[in-house]
Amino acid sequence: MSLQERKTHMAGDAAIYIKSRFAVCTGIQVTTVWMRNNGNPIGTSTFALYIRGTVKDNDRTIRYEPCSPRCSTPPPKKTGVQR
């Protein structure tokens, strides 16, 4: 499931996109309003986060992989010894 496919099916008010029993997606958009000490707003920032859940064949474990709109694939998996 590509990021573009997730964005297309999550547009509007969709809370979840189920492609198949092996691939589902959900997402959230967060907007922060920045304010001065006197309470006057001075700006906003927004980010979106998509979460892909996958299930491999002959397995019942769901693997969740976050991916922001800036990446086309999930972050690489860590390998080797972690120190």
Score class of each variant (00 low, 15 high):
residue 42 I to M: 10
residue 51 I to C: 09
residue 38 N to A: 02
residue 64 Y to V: 06
residue 73 T to W: 08
residue 20 S to Q: 05
residue 16 I to D: 01
residue 63 R to N: 13
residue 42 I to V: 15
residue 28 I to R: 14
residue 58 N to W: 04
residue 7 K to I: 12
residue 23 A to R: 07
residue 64 Y to K: 13
residue 35 M to I: 07
residue 23 A to N: 13
residue 11 A to Y: 06
residue 68 S to T: 15
residue 16 I to A: 03
residue 21 R to N: 13
residue 50 Y to I: 08
residue 39 G to A: 04
residue 24 V to K: 12
residue 35 M to W: 03
residue 20 S to K: 07
residue 20 S to G: 04
residue 67 C to D: 01
residue 69 P to D: 14
residue 43 G to V: 07
residue 28 I to G: 07
residue 11 A to V: 08
residue 10 M to T: 05
residue 34 W to G: 02
residue 41 P to D: 02
residue 60 R to M: 08
residue 31 T to Q: 09
residue 65 E to G: 01
residue 31 T to W: 03
residue 46 T to Q: 13
residue 65 E to H: 15
residue 21 R to I: 03
residue 14 A to W: 00
residue 16 I to Y: 07
residue 32 T to Q: 07
residue 43 G to W: 05
residue 71 C to Y: 12
residue 33 V to E: 01
residue 66 P to N: 02
residue 42 I to Y: 06
residue 67 C to I: 15
residue 13 D to T: 13
residue 66 P to L: 02
residue 65 E to M: 14
residue 10 M to D: 03
residue 32 T to N: 11
residue 39 G to Y: 04
residue 20 S to T: 15
residue 72 S to G: 15
residue 29 Q to S: 12
residue 59 D to W: 05
residue 48 A to L: 10
residue 56 K to F: 01
residue 32 T to I: 07
residue 43 G to T: 09
residue 61 T to V: 14
residue 51 I to K: 13
residue 39 G to L: 01
residue 11 A to H: 11
residue 17 Y to F: 14
residue 40 N to C: 07
residue 31 T to K: 12
residue 45 S to W: 00
residue 23 A to D: 15
residue 42 I to H: 02
residue 63 R to A: 07
residue 20 S to N: 13
residue 48 A to V: 11
residue 27 G to L: 02
residue 44 T to Q: 13
residue 72 S to W: 04
residue 68 S to P: 11
residue 9 H to T: 03
residue 8 T to M: 03
residue 48 A to E: 14
residue 62 I to P: 00
residue 27 G to I: 05
residue 31 T to I: 08
residue 70 R to H: 10
residue 35 M to C: 13
residue 13 D to V: 06
residue 20 S to M: 03
residue 33 V to S: 03
residue 24 V to I: 14
residue 33 V to W: 05
residue 33 V to H: 05
residue 66 P to Y: 12
residue 26 T to M: 08
residue 61 T to I: 13
residue 39 G to V: 01
residue 54 T to E: 10
residue 12 G to I: 02
residue 18 I to E: 03
residue 22 F to E: 06
residue 44 T to E: 05
residue 30 V to H: 07
residue 35 M to T: 11
residue 44 T to N: 07
residue 9 H to K: 14
residue 22 F to R: 12
residue 69 P to C: 06
residue 25 C to L: 00
residue 51 I to M: 14
residue 73 T to H: 14
residue 65 E to R: 15
residue 44 T to M: 09
residue 14 A to M: 05
residue 10 M to R: 10
residue 21 R to W: 10
residue 57 D to T: 11
residue 72 S to E: 08
residue 65 E to K: 15
residue 57 D to S: 12
residue 9 H to Q: 11
residue 54 T to A: 05
residue 49 L to G: 09
residue 12 G to A: 02
residue 15 A to M: 02
residue 37 N to Q: 09
residue 25 C to Y: 02
residue 20 S to F: 08
residue 50 Y to M: 03
residue 42 I to N: 10
residue 30 V to T: 14
residue 63 R to D: 09
residue 68 S to C: 11
residue 66 P to R: 11
residue 36 R to N: 09
residue 49 L to W: 09
residue 41 P to Y: 07
residue 57 D to Q: 12
residue 55 V to M: 15
residue 64 Y to T: 04
residue 46 T to W: 01
residue 41 P to S: 08
